[in-house]
């Protein structure tokens, strides 16, 4: 440790003092950036869904299906699925890391989280594909 780092970040005697000035460790910055990028994706695609739903004349099966199987809505919904499940996985990961401290339980919780979010996203994409390719009613 150079003298100037010690002067800038203070004593090395405390737990926080030992890590100050060393830069980030692990994958925090990557996680942080991806959370922001997917947040922007959510902002655009979920707002598209919300505004579209608000403007639809009705919410019966025929109206809803006709709207959702259109090229632009179906594409937006598919992109939304990827973005929201990705973002939700990252958010729930932070929740787990904050509250589950036993290493084994944390590993298991994140493994389950991966299954649930990747499985959920796959189901959503499959439903949209089936809606579009089975021919609009």
């Amino acid at each position: 440790m150079s003298r100037s780092t010690l002067n800038r970040y203070g004593s090395k005697g405390t737990a926080i003092g030992q890590v100050r000035g060393l830069g980030s460790s692990h994958e925090g910055a990557h996680h942080w950036l991806q959370q922001r990028f997917t947040a922007i994706g959510n902002l655009v695609t979920v707002l598209f869904l919300a505004i579209s739903l608000a403007l639809l004349p009705g919410y019966d099966y025929a109206t809803m299906r006709e709207w959702a199987s259109g090229v632009i809505p179906a594409t937006a919904l598919a992109l939304m699925i990827v973005s929201v499940f990705w973002h939700a996985r990252m958010g729930l990961q932070v929740l787990i890391e904050d509250y589950v401290h036993t290493p084994g339980n944390k590993f298991a919780a994140i493994a389950l989280l991966n299954l649930a979010t990747i499985g959920g996203a796959a189901f959503g994409l499959f439903a949209i594909a089936r809606l579009v390719f089975s021919g609009a009613a």
Partner: peptide
Amino acid sequence: LAVLLWWLGALA
């Protein structure tokens, strides 16, 4: 997300 998937699955 559960409601979203139910909605899409039901539509399909």
